[in-house]
Design a binder for these strands. Structure first.
Length: 267
DNA sequence: ATGGTGGTCATACCA
């Protein structure tokens, strides 16, 4: 049975609802995980999603900052919102999607960006990011309940050398410092997760999902990073059909600085 | 070494 899931840091769902609608019409993923919705739950644009056939929506939003939402054409069961680092940020949402005889738990994450200075001693935002990673080690691919699992979202870290435009020039830049890249890889390994984007696109090949707003010509300079991820329990590796990074969406009118990433499965 | 752009919510804060 074909099944697809997408992740997209939308940077304000209300401002960019027309882009979301275009994406859903053109790609029709079964499940869309949004980050940085910047939208309180009571103001979420439910109706626009319902009109496109997405009847099942779980949100964890707050005013102005952060916020995640999981939008689905199939029922969502067992919705959970985890808190991290004793801060009331809306950065996680999980739900279980029944697909045929199988059940798929989908964790939607928005990891803290971490500020500019990569030193936890002087930058509380970076300390928060490292603390968040520490607590993410508890999110396991196999929880023994018979579900396959996915962990996806804006993890704000580009772990591999080919996940950034210049490994050497970004080694001291937040998102690609060794403490972050090694930390994220540890979270992934200890949780038993497979990096599904890299399962489909070899590590030799550069892949980016984010390009800064500050570049004069993002497309020409191509100084991107792979900050958005799709991880899965190892059983999903054999079910994975393809992964699409929708680079063209960065060139849409008034774009997000992140683009959608879609994983297609045969479950 | 610096500033570059964009969103939120009304003034700086965050990315």
């Amino acid at each position: 049975m074909p099944f697809s899931v997408a992740t997209w840091n939308i940077n304000s769902v209300r401002l960019r609802m027309s882009l979301v609608e275009r994406f859903l019409r053109e790609h029709q993923p079964d499940v869309l995980c949004l980050q940085e919705t910047k939208c309180p739950d009571d103001l979420f644009p439910y109706e626009a999603f319902h009109a496109l056939g997405y009847a099942h929506i779980a949100v964890s939003g707050q005013k102005g900052y952060h916020g995640v939402a999981t939008i689905s054409r199939r029922p969502l069961d067992g919705v959970e919102r985890k808190g991290f680092c004793n801060i009331v940020d809306c950065r996680h949402l999980s739900a279980v999607v029944p697909v045929g005889v199988r059940r798929l738990r989908i964790h939607n994450f928005y990891v803290p960006a971490g500020g500019d200075e990569p030193d936890p001693a002087i930058n509380p935002k970076f300390a928060h990011k490292l603390g968040f990673l520490e607590e993410m080690k508890a999110i396991l691919a196999d929880t023994g309940d018979g579900c396959s699992s996915m962990l996806l979202g804006d993890l704000n870290i580009a772990p591999l050398e080919t996940d950034v435009w210049s490994h050497k020039q970004l080694l001291k830049v937040v998102s690609h410092t060794p403490v972050e890249t090694e930390g994220l890889e540890f979270v992934r390994h200890i949780g038993g997760w497979s990096d599904l984007i890299r399962h489909h696109i070899t590590p030799e090949q550069k892949v980016f999902t984010w390009w800064s707003y500050r570049a004069r010509d993002w497309d020409l300079s191509d100084r991107g990073r792979r900050l958005d991820h799709i991880w899965g329990s190892p059983d999903l590796e054999t079910d994975l059909a393809s992964v699409t990074v929708l680079r063209e969406a960065r060139g849409w009118e008034r774009p997000s600085d992140h683009v959608p990433v879609i994983a297609h499965f045969n479950l």
